[in-house]
Simulated assay, not measured.
Amino acid sequence: MVKKGGADKLFDLVLYTLLAILAFTAIYPFWNTLVMSLNEGKDTSMGGLSFWPRAFTFTNYEVIFSDERFFRAMGITIARTVSGTFLSVLVTALMAFALAKKELKGKRFFMIIGIITMYFQGGLIPSYLWLRELGLFDNFWVLIIPGMLSIWNMIVFRTFFQGLPEELEESAKLDGCNYYSLFFRIVLPVSGPVFATLSLFTAVGLWNEWFNAGIYINNPDLLPVQNYLMNMINSSSTAEMLSQMGSGVNVVTQTFTPKSLQMTAVMVVTLPIIVVYPFLQKYFVKGVMIGSLKE
Results as ranks from 00 to 15, higher is better:
Met230His: 06
Asn139His: 13
Ile113Trp: 04
Asn231Trp: 08
Met36Gln: 14
Arg72Lys: 14
Ile215Met: 03
Lys173Glu: 05
Ser237Thr: 15
Gln162Gly: 15
Leu99Arg: 09
Tyr180His: 09
Lys4His: 14
Arg185Lys: 15
Val91Arg: 06
Phe86His: 01
Tyr119Thr: 10
Met245Glu: 01
Lys42Arg: 14
Glu295Gln: 13
Trp31Ile: 08
Asn208His: 02
Phe137Asn: 03
Ser45Asp: 14
Ala7Val: 15
Gly163Ala: 13
Phe71Gln: 11
Val266Gln: 05
Ala26Tyr: 02
Gly75Phe: 07
Arg185Phe: 14
Lys42Pro: 00
Asn208Tyr: 01
Leu261Met: 02
Thr197Trp: 06
Glu68Gly: 12
Glu295Arg: 07
Ile151His: 10
Tyr277Lys: 05
Ala26Met: 12
Val266His: 02
Val142Ile: 15
Ile76Met: 04
Leu188Arg: 00
Trp210Asp: 01
Phe70Gln: 05
Ser247Pro: 06
Leu261Trp: 02
Gly48Asp: 10
Ser243Glu: 10
Val156Gln: 09
Asp12Ala: 12
Asn60Ser: 07
Val285Leu: 05
Ala7Arg: 15
Ala100Arg: 10
Glu68Tyr: 01
Pro193Lys: 03
Trp141Met: 15
Lys42Thr: 14
Ile21Asp: 13
Leu136Arg: 06
Arg132Tyr: 11
Ala196Phe: 11
Ser45Arg: 09
Ile144Ala: 03
Ala26Gln: 08
Lys259Pro: 00
Tyr283Cys: 01
Lys105Gly: 03
Trp52Met: 07
Leu134Phe: 09
Glu40Met: 07
Thr255Ser: 14
Phe51Cys: 04
Ala26Gly: 00
Val252Thr: 15
Leu149Gly: 00
Ala23Lys: 02
Leu99Phe: 12
Leu168Cys: 01
Phe279Lys: 09
Leu124His: 05
Ala213Asp: 04
Ile112Arg: 06
Met74Ala: 14
Val285Tyr: 01
Leu229Gln: 07
Phe30Thr: 08
Leu87Pro: 03
Tyr28Asp: 12
Tyr216Lys: 03
Ser243Thr: 06
Gly248Arg: 11
Gly47Asp: 13
Lys286Pro: 01
Lys294Phe: 07
Tyr61Ile: 02
Leu229Met: 10
Ala93Gln: 00
Ser127Gln: 13
Arg158Thr: 06
Leu10Glu: 04
Lys9Gly: 05
Thr159Pro: 02
Asn212Trp: 04
Val194Ser: 05
Phe109Ala: 11
Met154Ala: 10
Ala196Val: 10
Glu170Met: 08
Met241Pro: 04
Met46Ser: 09
Met232Ser: 07
Ile125Tyr: 13
Ala239Trp: 04
Val142Ala: 12
Trp210Met: 08
Lys102His: 06
Lys4Cys: 07
Ile155Met: 12
Leu94Met: 13
Ile233Cys: 02
Phe11Ile: 04
Gly287Cys: 09
Ser247Asn: 14
Tyr216Gln: 06
Asn208Gln: 10
Ser236Ala: 05
Met232Leu: 14
Ile144Asn: 01
Met118Ile: 05
Met232Asp: 02
Tyr119Leu: 14
Asn250Gln: 13
Arg132Asp: 06
Leu49Gln: 10
Leu222Met: 06
Gly291Asp: 01
Lys286Thr: 14
Thr77Leu: 00
Met230Leu: 11
Leu19Met: 15
Val190Gln: 08
Pro126Gly: 09
